[in-house]
Amino acid sequence: MLTESPVRLGFALPRGATDSHCHVFGPADRFPYSESRRYTPEDRPKEMLAALHARLGLERAVIVQASCHGTDNRAMVDALRWAPDRYRGVAMIDDDTPDAALRDMQDAGVRGIRFNFIKALGGKPDMGVFHRAAARAAPLGWHMVMQLQGDGVLEMEPVIRALPMPVVIDHMGRVDPALGVEGPAFRALLELVKDDRIWVKLSGAERMTTTPFAEAVPFAAALLRAAPMRVLWGTDFPHPNLTTPVDEAELLNLLPAFAPTPEDRQRLLVDNPAALYGFPN
């Protein structure tokens, strides 16, 4: 069960505020984890995610398929069908994913596909599979979500620019905060988001630094200034592969530093995710 947080929000969330990056795990007795997974999480089913959002005041969510479930998207799709007006999804697919499954996921609210390029999660995927997946997803109007880490932004820049669809970069590119905003990977990310097809999530502060997460602020603020109409934010609940507990209310309280004005926060939390994911008015 989720415990009540002692942290209170220091600002008012706009109506329709969206968690644009979160996960559901299991329950394993209904939705088993992938046999090729690199980690085994504790079950965090859709009911726990909904309870967190109710406590925080977040009204909508984008549920992103995590690598522990591999390309078995059933837990994620089950959550989408449970709250179709409030949830959208991002799937993981490969060559074995049938066209019928893509159509079913489209009907359920999936709007993108995701590939991990993180060494701890398996490293660079088969690029043939990656490009074939992009070619299948693009006609559906879906986008590509890429989890990169630091220099991976530089390495993948030509691939990102050549994709036939919008691209979302997870967790501010997971750049090294020790290199500062002038670090080469972050400068490359700032150049990328000048392209009006490329979005970035101002999430993952807890992966860059420890509480109170202040080291993440200059990076998020710079990205918001560079692409105010193409930034998103998410909790990353339940924070897979982190050993230190994270209070999502603390992450939310960073937002006035990321996005100083109510107009900035309206775009970050409501308007931008609505535009990308097609939430109803």
Results as ranks from 00 to 15, higher is better:
Pro6His: 09
Arg8Glu: 15
Leu9Asp: 02
Ala12Lys: 06
Pro14Ala: 12
Arg15Ser: 14
Asp19Glu: 13
His21Trp: 02
Val24Gln: 00
Tyr39Cys: 02
Thr40Ala: 14
Arg44Thr: 13
Glu47Lys: 14
His53Tyr: 10
Gly57Thr: 11
Arg60Phe: 10
Ser67Glu: 11
Cys68Ser: 13
Met76Gln: 02
Ala79Gly: 02
Ala79Pro: 00
Arg88Gln: 06
Gly89His: 12
Gly89Met: 11
Val90Arg: 08
Met92Asp: 00
Met92Cys: 12
Ile93Ala: 08
Ala100Ser: 09
Leu102Gly: 06
Arg111Glu: 01
Gly112Pro: 07
Phe115Thr: 06
Ile118Phe: 12
Ile118Trp: 04
His131Gln: 01
His131Arg: 13
Arg132Asp: 09
Arg136Val: 14
Pro139Ala: 08
His143Asp: 04
Met146Thr: 12
Gly152Asp: 12
Val153Asp: 00
Leu154Thr: 11
Arg161His: 02
Ala162Ile: 04
Met165Arg: 10
Val168Cys: 09
Arg174Phe: 04
Val175Gln: 00
Asp176Asn: 15
Pro177His: 05
Gly180Asn: 06
Glu182Thr: 11
Leu190Val: 04
Ser203Arg: 06
Thr209Pro: 01
Ala214Tyr: 08
Ala221Gln: 07
Ala221Thr: 06
Pro228Gln: 09
Met229Ala: 12
Leu232His: 05
Trp233Ile: 13
Thr235Arg: 06
His239Tyr: 14
Pro240Asn: 04
Leu242Val: 11
Glu248Asp: 15
Leu251Thr: 07
Leu251Gln: 04
Pro260Leu: 08
Arg265Met: 07
Arg265Phe: 02
Val270Trp: 00
Pro273Ile: 09
Ala275Ser: 10
Leu276Gln: 08
